[in-house]
Write a protein that binds this DNA or RNA. Structure first.
Length: 530
RNA sequence: GUCCCUGUAGCUCAGUGGAUAGAGCGCUUCCCUGCGGAGGAAGAGGCCAGAGGUUCAAAUCCUCUCAGGGACACCA
């Protein structure tokens, strides 16, 4: 349990049962460590001056808190209650970090199985930057949810058959000049390259464009896997084939289920699903008038399979171009009985080069791929940069800056803090935590500030697990790095009197532990030197 | 036309209805190489797009307007 949670428990004892309130980290310019606005909330129901209420609660907290937990609790301004932690409390948290090590920041908040689906881009070509954005988000969100106690499965749903794949097959034939070119075909160099390499095979399959497309899609999926797993270090547990959903009868099964539950109907020669019953703006076709199941129906079959495999919670991350898909897939999740179904939509990335907008289009073939970007700036920089920004923000990625001046990237600032911490220990030849140390020796503003920042780590995990705001982690990394650089500049470890040296050594080890935990969640390396 | 996202410092972006709106980059000044300076300190720079409203309290919630991005297939 983090410090904030402990304070929350204490405050809850001092206010009427069921009162909604929050405890937050105090503003930077305040001297207090944490604060609550509960007195303002109570002022409404009790019809009293918030300051008066705050004073009552503050003294009650003083009586009910464990001895020595707070340095002091005081009322400030119009009715804020400010908490000042004792050095003893901070010291305990420091010892907890040293004791739990890798497990520090592991919570028991979410006790459920979650299926997390992300990227799921068509294997008809390389990934775009938007795919990569969703990929990093999904990967790190998975890490966060696991830290928060959930069992997480990460899945890539592969659209390895159907019209887009047929289109790919035709694009390849057109690239070889076997059929006439068309506006709608994929145009990228990768199509031509693949076609040139497989000219003999194409000759034998020229009557079967779908099978050809499926064959090429298999290769492109292989390339995607290399880019995603090897280069970008995004982890998946499962690649689910759409084709398999068809062949294993799940499509028929889900169709029968829709019929049985009365959500499907016939019209205009096709079969429809009544998604408008769940807030969609129109009903959706699930079987075409030619009798073919649509992608949407297959995806419903995929959702059914997920449910049958024991998942009641599903999180699906979609790119900006699939926003229109949200309402209908949520309708399916409702019909199938998922307890929780969340769809996160990331916003687009605009790529800027030399101050100019670079137009990206997969079909026309002019784009900088996700893989190229990772190759260019490295996985650490790409991950950190993407993850600093909230997913709903329309992001401008300055390629010129990323390529030419990547050392300006905040990731170096953060990693350098870690290198410095590690180096102190290396120079002092310290391998283990001092057997005993006196936390009261950590008394300077820099010492205290660093401990406070370290103690926030579990709170950041908790917040991110609650609102899926993964960018909290990178922001926190910057704050922690700042606290450490500040400590490093002002205070010394080696050369201090032994009791201070030991206490600071413990503090530096704790800093390394938190950085390592943080880096592993964000998915960046913990470098030995820079 | 309908729907979604966004509008905060020169730039890129944070900011769970609360106290004096923050960070990085860029700019000015200082520390001058010490446990690796890819660092630290200080400063300049804001009608939080605009107008109404709700509230003890609004960058944050609601309505409208303006601006930018995106989505509106029997494609995915």
């Amino acid at each position: 349990m983090g410090i904030r949670s402990k304070i929350t428990v204490i405050v809850a004892k001092a206010v009427p049962k069921g009162t909604a309130f929050d405890v937050r980290v105090a503003e930077e310019h305040q001297e207090a460590h944490y604060a609550t606005t509960v007195a303002f909330q109570l002022a409404k129901t009790e019809k009293k001056n918030p300051r008066e209420i705050a004073a009552r609660i503050a003294s009650d907290i003083g009586a009910k808190a464990p001895r020595g937990f707070f340095e002091k609790v005081e009322v400030a301004g119009p009715g804020f209650i400010n908490f000042f932690l004792s050095n003893e409390t901070l010291g305990k948290e420091l010892k907890q970090i040293l004791g739990e090590k890798r497990k520090y920041g592991t919570l028991k908040l979410l006790k459920k199985k979650i299926q997390l689906e992300f990227i799921s881009a068509n294997p008809t070509g390389p990934l775009t930057l938007a795919n990569g954005r969703g990929g990093f988000l999904g990967d790190v969100l998975g890490n966060v949810l696991q830290r928060a106690g959930a069992k997480v499965e990460r899945e890539y749903y592969v659209n390895d058959t159907g019209n887009q794949v047929l289109n790919l097959g035709k694009s390849i034939l057109a690239a070889r000049g076997i059929i006439p070119d068309s506006e709608e075909y994929y145009k990228g160099d990768y199509v031509k390259e693949w076609a040139d390499k497989h000219s003999a095979l194409i000759e034998t399959m020229k009557e079967k464009p779908l099978a050809l497309g499926e064959r090429a899609a298999k290769d492109f999926l292989g390339l995607i896997k290399i880019a995603v797993e090897k280069k970008a270090k995004i982890e998946f547990n499962r690649f689910t084939s759409e084709k398999r959903i068809h062949t294993t009868g799940l499509v028929k099964k889900v169709l029968a289920l829709f019929k049985k539950k009365g959500f499907s109907f016939e019209g205009e020669g096709a079969m429809w699903l009544k998604t408008t019953a769940f807030g969609d703006d129109k009903d959706r076709v699930i079987v075409t008038k030619e009798g073919n199941p649509t992608y949407f129906l297959a995806d419903a079959g995929h959702y059914l399979e997920t449910k049958q495999r024991g998942f009641d919670t599903k999180i699906n991350i979609l790119g900006p171009d699939h926003y229109g898909y949200v309402a209908r897939i949520q309708a399916v999740a409702k019909i199938l009985g998922f307890k929780e179904s969340t769809v996160l939509v990331t916003q687009a990335i605009r790529l800027m080069e030399q101050g100019e907008l670079v137009k990206m289009s997969k079909r026309k073939g002019k784009f900088v791929t996700f893989e190229e970007l990772v190759d260019e700036v490295g996985a650490d920089v790409a991950r950190f940069f993407f993850l600093m920004i909230a997913p709903e923000t329309h992001m401008d990625f300055d390629l010129t800056l990323a390529k030419e001046r990547s050392q300006k990237n905040p990731v170096y600032y953060v990693q350098y803090a870690y290198v410095r911490a590690k180096n102190i220990l290396t120079k002092m030849k310290i391998k283990t935590i001092p057997k005993s140390f006196n936390v009261t020796k950590l008394s300077t503003a820099q010492d205290i500030n660093l401990i406070r920042e370290l103690a926030r780590f579990p709170e950041i995990i908790e917040d991110a697990a609650r609102d899926y705001g993964v960018h909290r982690l990178t922001r926190y990394a910057l704050n922690l790095a700042k606290a450490f650089h500040n400590f490093y500049e002002v205070e010394r470890v080696a050369g201090e009197e032994k009791t201070i040296k030991d206490a600071r050594t413990a503090l530096v080890i704790a800093t390394c532990i938190v950085f390592e935990n943080l880096f592993s969640i964000i998915g960046i390396t913990a470098p030995k030197k820079m």
